[in-house]
Design a protein around this nucleic acid. Structure first.
Length: 955
RNA sequence: GGGGCGGUGGCGGAAUGGCAGACGCGGCGGACUUAAACUCCGUUGGGGAAACCCGUGUGGGUUCGACUCCCACCCGCCCUACCA
């Protein structure tokens, strides 16, 4: 090897990469494998597996992978059996769009992309067990994705136990009359009051067709005709989560329309409570938990019936979180799509209502969004009765009430809800005060009344309250949760003087007694729209019979393979009303049609969304080749333990989609006994992103970032000024840096260290290739400290001096702590500091070298391996233990105590380190040479913090 | 509008109640070189010749002591948004 004082990273890295591959260093043994040591604790560390997108990796992509690789190596040295796998999430829209754009079959492009990315990951020496590699498009994998779908299809959510159970247990329960069936198909407890209501029937009273319908209605996977997000340009429907806030597709940014279509749905709403509650079980970033809680959107309130005033005795049901404000409900509002709108509308209002509904339907979510806050609506001509006040109140329709949330209808309380207030003021509807806000709010809101001359500036609270009640329309509406109810009494019930919580309970109980309300928990979360009209996804294991019956494919017949088709492209259209045309409708006849017992069945033509495969891949890594089952339960128990994956690292962009879906599937598998932990990912870490500067010239074109020079206050390219912007890295921005070019110039270890050294893992930070020389110099300096120019080892057998020992053990302690906390930037800084103290010494004491090289091993594995072997140890350094710091070397014998008065140094005193607080104070007070009087004042006390500073208190 | 995170040298960032700016980049000085680059050594928050003074977005507070804790505000980023 060349020894010019530089670390020969090229040779060293090639040597050890080949050696690791050769030795199978990264093979993970699990239960059942020869040589597996089950007495060791396990550590499962997982990356969010990538889409093989085809654009290639830039230096930002591997950030999280490097972090997990460091942890995997560290835990291994700590004696854990480490599972650290990698695979590819290869189905779905991104892969298919790429194939469409390049006019190649997605299987071809996907596999080529996988090969490229796998090669790039290997070149980073990420220590994955590649024998466990999985790909979601592999039939051996998606067979089990289909199998899980069948589990969902064949299960229901038992409200008695709050968990999923096989569908046959629903039949048992119904046969035993534990449940009866209401008119709308919902279940009611067989022994409850509701079971006796007319229209509620027992299992024995149902026809075979009705029975089938009841069962189908309770499956966790079910077909339903629902308003869905239809994206004609993508030719498919999308989940709510895949539609942006302005009503466009997340992929491709095409318009999305609401439209009723029959689709497969997954009943994730059944798990809303547990998905929210079990967030308390996991160690996730608080921000991410908040995102999931908001998405689930649990709110407690009541469903209240307002009887229509048209003699029909029909009722309009609303959901409210504030039943205590019902005395202030002066009108009702329906969403334009509400099914009762037609029935309520009077002949005189018909034309206006129809026009408004048509306009609302045409606008779509995007337009509605654009004019948010401007309240529009029309009066239906109909009225209903406020059950609390007995007043006859008008019914309006308005698009600020959403069809998809609650009952699609609200009671409007304009005095205490900002939106209702805006609407009431716009249309001259009555506004009534029924809650008195607290004094502070009233006082600050009184400015208007004072300006109007109704109140003097020093008016007392009583005057303020009186003015508020009399002139509430001139105050901003406020949803006060802390006020007390007023003017909310009728002969049977009064809320006056009650706080909000008590008032809610009181009024709900009273209304419930009259059969007009019940307490209700409402979620924003909707069921998961699970089918797509695309080619590149898992086919459903479902057959449709001649009479419309649905038959699941037998387990033994799985997988249902995706048919080979050249004609896989979706047919884009700009017509929002065009019928969906799933590409599988053009599949060969022998795929589409299945004969069974003389009956002809047609295959389901939709495919699953791209989230399906990623919902359970972490389980397959545990037992990737198993053809008999999803995962061997013995292996699953070992690797998942009670808390699931020990560390899951990925970007925050999957905060509500992948992570919510995967938790849902996991809980179903848990309920059905296929896995043993209630949550899949015990600890989750969101890494930040590596960003970069991009530069635009004055024509607006990007110029290559590496050619830009800094020039005083600005930046220039070829002598012309350019403007700098900060953001993503990308080819089109001409600021992309690939791992390959950086590895060529600095080596893998340097790249790994630099990425970790940039800053805290969870933060986004700017890439700067030129800054890498700092790490490069560190590695060269380290090499020189260990290896002489002639190639001999600069390691001596002399005992290290006390200062160096102390420094070493401080470093061991710091690096260990930093590893546990994923603070790799400070771990590296500690190593640099230690290395700097070695510069200029004749030789590194062997004791120091033997401890220092393992510390380096997770971060810079190649150099550590080389030094470890040069030190005369057997490879691999991963097989050695992690060094432990020895507290004896950190022991301090004396401490210099600084005596300060008002922050100014007034004296110094050396005391034994173990002297203790009281002894130190006594020493300070007793020693006249140090301090007795300050500025003519007597020292009265000395405050001592062990090992730290001291302050002096004067008399 | 609501929620979350953050604001420290020229830059990335350390320090979470105890000597602010670890470590690195950049800068400056020096060595090496015909010279430059690379590399190495030293130095580097600001002001001051120095003693010393001033410094963690702003204003208050708690404390012997605050970048750190509390209150209010300003600014930036992310998420979310007519969810009743």
């Amino acid at each position: 090897m060349s020894e010019d004082g530089r670390y020969p990273y090229g040779e060293v890295e090639a040597k050890w990469r080949a050696w690791w591959d050769d030795q199978g260093t990264y093979r993970t043994l699990g239960p059942g494998d020869n040589g597996f040591d089950g007495s060791r604790p396990k550590y499962y560390v997982l990356d969010m597996f990538p889409y093989p997108s085809g654009k290639g990796l830039h230096v930002g992509h591997p950030l999280g992978y490097i972090a997990t690789d460091i942890i995997a190596r560290y835990k291994r040295m700590r004696g854990f059996n480490v599972l650290h796998p990698m695979g590819f999430d290869a189905f779905g829209l991104p892969a298919e769009q790429y194939a469409v754009e390049h006019n190649v079959h997605p299987r071809v492009t996907t596999q080529a992309n996988i090969a490229t990315i796998r090669q790039q990951l290997r070149s980073l020496s990420l220590g994955y067990d590649w024998e466990r590699e999985i790909s979601t498009i592999d039939p051996g994998y998606y067979r089990w994705t289909q199998w899980i779908f069948l589990q969902l299809y064949d299960s229901w959510f038992d409200p008695r136990e709050g968990k999923a159970r096989p569908l046959k247990t629903l039949v048992t329960a119904l046969s035993a009359d534990a449940f009866r069936v209401a008119g709308d198909g919902s279940l009611v407890a067989g022994d409850g009051e509701a079971a006796k209501t007319p229209g509620v029937r027992g299992w024995g009273e149902l026809s075979p067709m009705d029975r089938q319908a009841v069962l189908d209605d309770h499956r966790l996977a079910y077909l339903a005709e629902v308003p869905v997000n239809w994206c004609p340009m993508l030719g498919t429907v999308l989940a709510n989560e895949e539609v942006t806030a302005d009503g466009r597709s997340e992929r491709g940014n095409f318009p999305v329309y609401k439209r009723p279509l029959k689709q497969w749905m997954l009943r994730i709403t059944a798990y809303a409570d547990r998905l929210a509650a079990d967030l308390d079980l996991v160690d996730w970033p608080e921000a991410l938990k908040t995102m999931q809680r908001n998405w689930i959107g649990r709110s407690e309130g009541a469903l209240v019936d307002f009887v229509l005033d048209d003699g029909s005795s029909r009722a309009l049901r609303v959901f409210t979180t504030r039943p205590d404000t019902i005395f202030g409900a002066t009108y009702l509002v329906l969403s334009p799509e509400h099914p009762l709108v037609s029935a309520i509308t009077t002949p005189e209002a018909r034309a206006a209502v129809d026009a408004y509904r048509a306009a609302a339907a045409a606008k779509g979510d995007m337009a509605r969004q654009a004019e948010a806050k401007v309240k529009t609506g029309v009066f239906t001509g109909g009225h209903a009765v406020n059950p609390a006040t007995g007043a006859r109140i008008p019914i309006w329709i308005a698009d600020y009430v959403l069809a998809g949330y609650g009952t699609g209808a609200i009671m409007a309380v304009p005095g205490h809800d900002e939106r209702d207030g805006d609407f009431a003021r716009a249309f001259g509807l009555p506004i009534k005060a029924v809650v008195l806000p607290d004094d502070g709010w009233l006082r600050s809101a009184a400015a208007g009344a004072i300006a109007a001359g109704r109140l003097s500036a020093d008016a007392d609270m009583d005057a303020l309250r009186a003015d508020y009640v009399a002139h509430i329309a001139e105050y901003p509406s406020v949803f006060v949760g802390y006020g007390r109810s007023i003017d909310s009494a009728n002969p049977e019930v009064s809320l006056d003087g009650l706080d909000s919580a008590t008032a809610k309970r009181t009024i709900t109980a009273w209304l419930a007694g009259k059969g007009l309300a019940k307490a209700h928990v409402q979620y924003k979360l909707r069921d998961w729209l699970f089918s797509r009209q695309r080619y590149w996804g898992e086919p459903f294991p479902i057959l449709h019979g001649p009479d419309g019956e649905i038959v699941p494919v037998a387990e033994d017949d799985l997988p249902v393979r995706l048919p080979e088709m050249d004609d896989f492209q979706p047919i884009p259209t700009e017509d929002p009303n065009a019928p969906p045309q799933p590409p599988l409708a053009r599949a060969p006849l022998e795929w589409r049609v299945v004969e069974r017992d003389g009956v002809t069945y047609h295959r389901e033509l939709n495919t699953m969304p791209n989230w399906a495969g990623s919902c359970w891949y972490y389980l397959r890594f545990i037992d990737p080749g198993d053809e008999e089952r999803l995962v061997d339960p013995i292996k699953e128990r070992y690797w998942m333990g009670d808390n699931g994956v020990d560390l899951y690292v990925g970007g925050v962009e999957h905060g509500v989609l992948h992570l919510l879906y995967a938790r849902f599937w996991h809980k179903v598998l848990y309920d059905l006994g296929h896995v043993g932990s209630p949550e899949p990912f015990g600890r989750l870490f969101n890494q930040g992103y590596i960003q970069a500067y991009a530069y635009k010239d004055d024509r607006g074109f990007y110029v290559p970032a590496e050619e830009v020079a800094a020039d005083g206050d600005g930046f220039t390219h070829d002598g012309y000024p350019v403007a700098r912007e900060y953001g993503k890295m990308g080819k089109s921005l001409k600021n992309m840096v690939t791992p390959d070019e950086v590895i060529e110039r600095y080596g893998v270890d340097c790249l790994r260290l630099y990425e970790m050294y940039l800053g805290p893992l969870e933060q986004s930070k700017p890439w700067s290739t030129r800054d890498m020389v700092g790490i490069s110099r560190f590695l060269d300096r380290l090499w020189r400290n260990f290896v002489a120019p002639d190639g001999s080892l600069r390691v001596g057998d002399d005992a290290p001096d006390a200062a160096l020992l102390r420094q070493l053990h401080v470093t061991i302690q710091r690096v260990s702590d930093d590893m546990e906390g994923l603070r790799f930037n400070t771990a590296i800084a500690a190593l640099i500091e230690l290395n700097n103290t070695l510069v200029g010494r004749d030789a590194v004491p062997r004791e120091v070298a033997q401890a220092m090289v393992p510390l380096l091993a997770p971060l810079a594995p190649h150099m550590a391996e080389e030094l470890w072997s040069r030190l005369g140890n057997a490879p691999s350094v991963l097989s050695t233990g992690w060094p432990e710091h020895d507290p004896r070397y950190l022991k301090v014998t004396s401490v210099e105590v600084v005596l300060q008065v008002n922050g100014k140094v007034r004296g110094r005193l050396t005391v034994p380190a173990d002297a203790g607080v009281d002894a130190t104070r006594d020493l300070a007070l007793a020693d006249p040479s140090v301090l007795r009087h300050v500025d003519g004042q007597t020292v009265r006390n000395v405050i001592v913090v062990p090992g730290k500073l001291v302050n002096v208190v004067l008399a």
